[in-house]
Amino acid sequence: MTDFPATKRHQKTDAKTIPAMARRKRSVGSVFSWAVFVFGVLYFALPLIGMIEFSLRKRRGTYSFDAYTSVLNDSQFQATFTYSVVMSLVTILLGMILVLPAALWVRIRLPRMRPVIEFITLLPLVIPVIVIAFGYLRMFNTSSLLPMTGSVTGTNILLAFGYATLALPYMYRAIDNGLRTLDVQTLTEAAQILGAGWFTILFRIMLPNVFTALLSGAFLTFSIVLGEYVFAALLDRPAFGPYMIWTGGNRAYEPAALAVIAFTITWGCMGLIQLAGRLFPHTRAQR
């Protein structure tokens, strides 16, 4: 409180003594800032406007939703889109089952393993996706010890595993951030005293408490897996990513419509992450 008048006085003298030249320089800086900002808005907005406009051009001479009806009625679209949605859900579930116990154990039992686990979760960002996919084709082909690519089910499982690998960095970061806000040690001990087993602790105590954090990891994973191309193409599975590439080579206006749909989904996922954070901000405090 004591230095409040001092600051005020300082501001007053400051405003009076700023020379006109310096003030003009400030406004030059401000004009530059606005110019940069407008450039940024144009660069980011024009491709979005362009793709929306293009997607409406299918009928000659007038705007229509023809490209969208054509896409939505395409049985290939329905099949690949459903396939990728199911794959995303499986990936989210798998990622959760792998990462939640590991992140929890690192906090309560094995703090010295933290650097190792964190390093592993960063690897999928370091090793290019195409290299991991290549490794899968070499290690799990029909003449290997674990011939997963030999059957359709096996390949589907392998693809889900690949996606779970890609999702590791995001899942781990999300869950670890969630656990950070909890007193994990006390919660675990309290649960154990009340006779809870590890399964109960994991899925009935930790899971609800990190639910918001988990949702943000889940939506991010969803938007990544939905449009993923390399893994699906190399494992030769009928996913949404390869379908989009195929459409790009064979149709004129439908690709733009697909881009609009994909962008809306990405936008929706990011919106839901923020919404989840706002809807359940204090899951812990309510108990």
Partner: peptide, 14 residues
């Protein structure tokens, strides 16, 4: 996160 195939389509359309 708006990368990959749809991004290319958006720029082709623009």
């Amino acid at each position: 996160n708006f990368a990959g195939v749809p991004l290319a389509f958006a720029f082709i359309a623009t």
